[in-house]
Design a protein around this nucleic acid. Sequence first.
DNA 1: TTAGTATTTCGTAAAAATACGAAACAAATG
DNA 2: CATTTGTTTCGTATTTTTACGAAATACTAA
Lengths: 97, 97
Amino acid sequence: MNDFYTEEQKDIARWAKALGHPVRVYIIQLLSKQSCCYSGDLAEELPIARSTLSQHLKELKGSGLIQGKIRPPKIKYCLNKENWAKAKILFSNLLDI
Amino acid sequence: MNDFYTEEQKDIARWAKALGHPVRVYIIQLLSKQSCCYSGDLAEELPIARSTLSQHLKELKGSGLIQGKIRPPKIKYCLNKENWAKAKILFSNLLDI
DNA sequence: TTAGTATTTCGTAAAAATACGAAACAAATG
DNA sequence: CATTTGTTTCGTATTTTTACGAAATACTAA
């Protein structure tokens, strides 16, 4: 492991990286507003292939910012509220808000 | 150009991407505290090659988050206060702070 | 059981990020 | 002018990201 950086710095970097693409910002903004959505709803409005969208969702999920609940035959995506709250705190500190 | 995303979404993504590596978070945190620093000072404390550091600084500069002023023979790096203020606003909105 | 719906995974390709050491550069000093 | 100092650019290699279409998966409904 790289021991040089603090856990906080790594968390900020991980979440910032997750927000480092406009489509993922779009998704997070949507989830902030309406709390949940389905991949299909996103796919209809976004100008990218479904598989590409799926990749972005996977990345957001991997960062911990969102979570997906299987609700057959769909998958319902929501913010991961716990991590979102953490992210708020860390970004607030960084930005001195 | 990709017209689908708003300027705001692109700005957030650009700045988030710039913060998407622990070393760049480290640099930004430092500059938030002490407002300015030299590449050499960073190079001494960071566990990466000077050329790699230079690349990270270039990326931060490219994103608009920092700026470098030539102060021979050194280069003095500072936060770009204008963009930093913008970033604060955009991230505040996104995080609903 | 077959067909349909929603989404992901796979295979692949192209572009971007990360890292290093060597070499180049730009300005001040001897 | 030659040297020193601080930093960047170059060349290169490796890894990661982004993107797409085709195929696979998982569950429901007919």
